[in-house]
Design a binder for these strands. Structure first.
Lengths: 369, 369
DNA sequence: CTGTTAGCGCTTTCAT
DNA sequence: ATGAAAGCGCTAACAG
């Protein structure tokens, strides 16, 4: 049973020749029944299986990969699994992969292009069968190289302008437009947006990266909605608060106590939403009495607060699942032209949106209690 | 079968012989400089590197693993990455692993022992260097087998009675005791606990699995605190609400509108916390005026609600990091006896705990608005 | 320092 | 149906 060579670090594992010998058959025969290919008579089959069980044989997938050229592995690069959105996407990818008999190696880029490149490089060396990447920079030569090497790549959450790569993204612009249109529909004319999108200085031309940044797309949608509603736009109301929650909090604190106080808030990501609500809590602002709020991403806590938060909900898990399925198709050899899959988001109307207040109630900062 | 025709999408990658030929050196020499071992004269070194760059050579990690017996891979099995607690733990593992030059393959068990076994089996076949597992059943023969095969295993979040395996867990019992003691200290005598721990019928002997179930440990801590404070215990106040949020909500709805209404709630996991707060929101219960609440796990939203929620905070990321470090040490050959590492939790006092109300205010269900 | 030569464990001709 | 033997791309002895 337990054949443990004394104090061996790496007890030599049972191999096919071992099993073959034990079963009294040729190596190739044993390999055939254990590998489940070729054919063998029921009798030998039986003998080999018995021998394998007895010796505790287990396939060496590394050796198999060496020959087959396939590792049954998907490499996945996301910004950060701790972010609920990415966690859900990863779950979606993993489920589809496992279903197809593949496993997933996970890497976090922290929005750092270098980390992303390093991870992709390692993945290629490991001969993953395909790559799902949430790109963190507009550069994509490393991804192109992967494809050229024979490793298909599918972009998740963000498309890359000018890259011949499949991508699976949400309709960020449309989602933001729909959300902000709700706000204008309620008579709001001073609608602020809190975003992690980089500030380009030009409110009309939100970002350079094109469609890399989902949040940029959302700001664009915000602007389109305002324009469509004939609401004057103001750079004052677009706050680039960075990736940190406290940044968003500070921005909203400033906005709500300043001269150009908005009557509605639209956040373009869940971190911004948290920070904005932190600020409103500290100001004891009434929602939607003092200010209406629409968040992005339907986190588990959005129904917990009172009033429950109206949000744009992204199908994160489906995005991941579709990315994985697209990748699997490529791995199986599909060579249709790269395509962008845009998934619809849904607006979840709850109670945080109301009519624009006729008079503004003074708000002041109070230590939360 | 079907060895892909040369035209196909597995363009033969550049190998060491290719580089050697191109550089006009022997294969071993090229291998030495590319593999970064042995030695080579600066001149040849240069030539090889140039040739490699020119041809676009990239190491084949599979072939290397075949020889070295190491894959530089950790297998990780958690219940579900979508759960913020596990996401943080995975992040902790990944960070330590990457730092050490390893990558992480992720599998979700969904608390299903079969899925766990299947994942572990696959991991062994893939020759991962080590395994971090959040066990979902008390059986551990598959883990023992992994260790016997030479694949070290570290348990995360849950220890396994009678298993000779390293484990990294939180002090669940002590954490619960400390939390509930706060409650008794405020004069509460009817303290309910909402848990996903399985119901064993016997309030004194919470579960069979021993210390597998963290939530069971927490219930035990709850009971110890009550006993220590001389507060009478009642099975009525222990609600086994399962893994779903709505289960916890229903339990609290029932509890708070029933005859034996508690004045304080202690939830043993974040799903229970969400469900409990759902119920309290629907009952328009005042916290801590009507009921004090202590949750388990410090989620991002706990400071968002008003009053902010007092919680037991687990160092999820450190748990993961320590698990990974322990594993790395084993991989490097440490053969000290298996050890259980218990990490301290912290009680985060916020505003959801107050004195027991002298009179109970009638609560009734109202559609959330 | 460098080149030659065996394998790692498996799959796959190619005979038998 | 089965066995012998040739590699996959790399590392590691072992010469030179």
């Amino acid at each position: 049973m337990a054949v443990m060579p004394p104090s061996a670090r790496s007890p030599r594992r049972v191999t096919i020749p071992d099993v073959a010998r034990h079963a009294g058959v040729g190596q190739a025969t044993a390999a055939r029944v254990l590998g489940g290919y070729g054919s063998a008579s029921p009798a030998t089959r039986e003998r080999v299986l018995a021998a394998a069980a007895e010796l505790g044989y287990s396939t060496n997938a590394v050796a198999r990969s060496m020959i087959s050229g396939r590792t049954n592995t998907l490499g996945v690069v996301v910004a950060d699994v701790e972010n609920a959105y990415f966690a859900r996407a990863v779950r979606g990818i993993t489920d589809v992969a496992v279903e197809a008999g593949l496993q997933v190696i996970l890497a976090n880029s922290d929005e750092d292009g270098e980390k992303e490149r390093a991870a992709v490089q390692l993945f290629i060396e490991r001969r993953v069968d395909g790559l799902v990447v949430t790109p963190s920079t507009a550069r994509h030569d490393h991804l192109d190289r992967a494809v050229a090497t024979g490793v298909p790549v599918v972009l998740l959450d963000r498309a890359l302008r000018g890259a011949a790569l499949d991508s699976v993204v949400a309709d960020n612009r449309g989602a933001a437009r729909a959300a902000v249109t709700r706000l204008t529909g309620h008579g709001h004319t001073r609608i602020a947006t809190i975003t992690s999108a980089p500030d380009t200085g030009d409110p009309d031309q939100p970002a350079t990266g094109g469609d890399v940044w989902t949040t940029t797309e959302r700001v664009t949608g915000y602007q389109q909605a305002l324009r469509a509603a004939g609401v004057p736009r103001s750079g004052e109301l677009i706050r680039h608060a960075g990736y940190r929650r406290c940044g968003a909090r500070a921005a909203v604190l400033d906005l709500m106590t300043g001269p150009a106080r908005p009557t509605a808030l639209f956040t373009t990501d869940n971190v911004a939403t948290l920070g904005a609500l932190d600020a409103l809590r500290d100001l004891a602002a009434r929602i939607p009495g003092d200010v209406s709020v629409i968040g992005f991403d339907d986190a588990e806590w959005t129904t917990l607060i009172r009033p429950r938060l109206s949000v744009v909900s992204q199908p994160a898990q489906e995005l991941g699942g579709l990315a994985a399925r697209t990748l699997l198709r490529r791995i199986e050899g599909a060579d249709t032209p790269p395509r962008r899959h845009t998934l619809r988001t849904t607006f979840v109307a709850r109670e945080s949106v109301g009519p624009a207040p006729s008079r503004v109630r003074r708000l002041r900062y109070e230590e939360s209690s």
